[in-house]
């Protein structure tokens, strides 16, 4: 501590002296700053190198591949925009994109809405023992691999699974069905798996945000005679703008880029009903060996994620200012 205060004092003196520098010293200073700048850039070099070699270059290659017809083995031929045109015209490809957007409903809106509701309901006892246990339990789905979530749930959602067992217990046996094998329910069922995984994260993020809200705001609202509903919409929700945007961003990326869960639970079936771009890229590139159209779909996927996520960020910035 002592040493630090003396060094800081010395530094102040140094600064005072610097105010009276001659031209020569100023030039020396600039030279030093430049040298330091060079050294600083050198510090970023390893990270930049890894990033360029394993991210930027592959992105550029994906774009390049997307203009070719290539089987990955024999020479390629130039294909122009035909791979992109195919995405528009081939219902299998365009369908996968529609499916991904449908998944947003389940991966994003359900966890955020349910998270808001739950966090609001329990913020009053956020520090109680129950809430502390809940924090650990609700977080479990976040730390296990998505593959594991897929395995567990495909077993639970099967014909003889727990879900149907519960329905039968409740006397709703006629609702029981093979959830992942039914055209009407397969995609929502995959969505439920995603919602299960992402709910805990959203809830805890929102809860953490709520505990930061100044309690006097609520007291003032109560004095004004606001009920819990008005309180939620006029105080809680506006204060959580940033957290909500974060939840939406994370979960929307998870929905659009989903792969693991679908790969394990349905492989895209029944009848392509749960085919998502990630899985279709994998099939096209490594199984059907249509590297060009797979790459075109990959480019479209990257752009779609940006197109959805970037506008969201400005929403959060408005909230801060």
């Amino acid at each position: 501590m002592q040493k630090r205060s003396t060094t800081i004092r010395r530094h102040r003196e140094d600064e005072a002296a610097a105010r009276f520098t001659t031209d020569r010293r100023r030039r020396a200073l600039r030279a030093r700053r430049l040298r330091r700048g060079g050294l600083a850039l050198a510090l970023t070099a390893p990270a930049v190198l890894a990033y360029v070699v394993f991210v930027i270059r592959p992105i550029a290659m994906t774009v390049q591949y997307s203009f070719y017809k290539w089987d990955g083995i024999t020479p390629s031929t130039w294909a122009g925009l035909s791979n992109y045109v195919a995405i528009l015209h081939n219902p299998e490809l365009s369908g996968s994109i529609v499916n991904a957007f449908t998944l947003i409903l389940f991966f994003s809106f359900v966890p955020v809405a349910l998270g808001l509701f739950t966090a609001n309901a329990i913020r009053g006892f956020a520090t109680s023992r129950l809430a502390v246990v809940a924090r650990t339990v609700l977080f479990l789905p976040q730390i296990i691999p998505l593959v594991a979530a897929g395995i567990m749930w495909s077993w639970q959602l099967s014909t003889d699974g727990v879900v149907n067992q519960v329905f039968r217990l409740l006397g709703l046996g006629r609702l029981a069905r093979p959830w992942l094998g039914d055209f009407g329910t397969a995609l929502p069922a995959v969505g439920v798996i995603g919602a299960w995984v992402l709910f805990g994260l959203c809830m805890l993020l929102l809860l953490a945000g709520m505990t930061k809200i100044d309690p006097s705001l609520y007291e003032a609202a109560r004095v004004d005679g606001a009920g819990p509903v008005r309180e939620f919409f006029s105080i809680t929700l506006p204060s959580l703008r940033q957290e909500v945007v974060v939840c939406l961003t994370v979960t929307i990326i998870a929905a659009l880029a989903s792969f693991d869960i679908v790969y394990i639970a349905t492989q895209g079936g029944p009848g392509n009903r749960t085919l998502v771009p990630g899985l279709e890229i994998y099939y096209l590139a490594f199984f059907q060996r249509q590297v060009g159209s797979a790459s075109a779909l990959a480019v479209v996927l990257m752009l779609l994620v940006l197109a959805v996520v970037l506008p969201l960020q400005s929403l959060s910035r408005e909230g801060k200012s």
């Binding site: 930049v48 990033y51 360029v52 930027i56 270059r57 992105i59 550029a60 290659m61 390049q64 591949y65 070719y68 290539w70 089987d71 990955g72 083995i73 024999t74 020479p75 390629s76 031929t77 130039w78 590297v291």
Partner: peptide
């Protein structure tokens, strides 16, 4: 800048080489 270099790197040749020059799968 990074993007530019990477693109230049990538643009060197068509994937899998062009017909004729490539080592066609024997």
């Amino acid at each position: 800048m990074i993007l530019g270099t990477a693109l230049a790197l990538a643009a060197c040749s068509a994937p899998g080489g062009t017909a004729g020059t490539s080592t066609a799968a024997s």
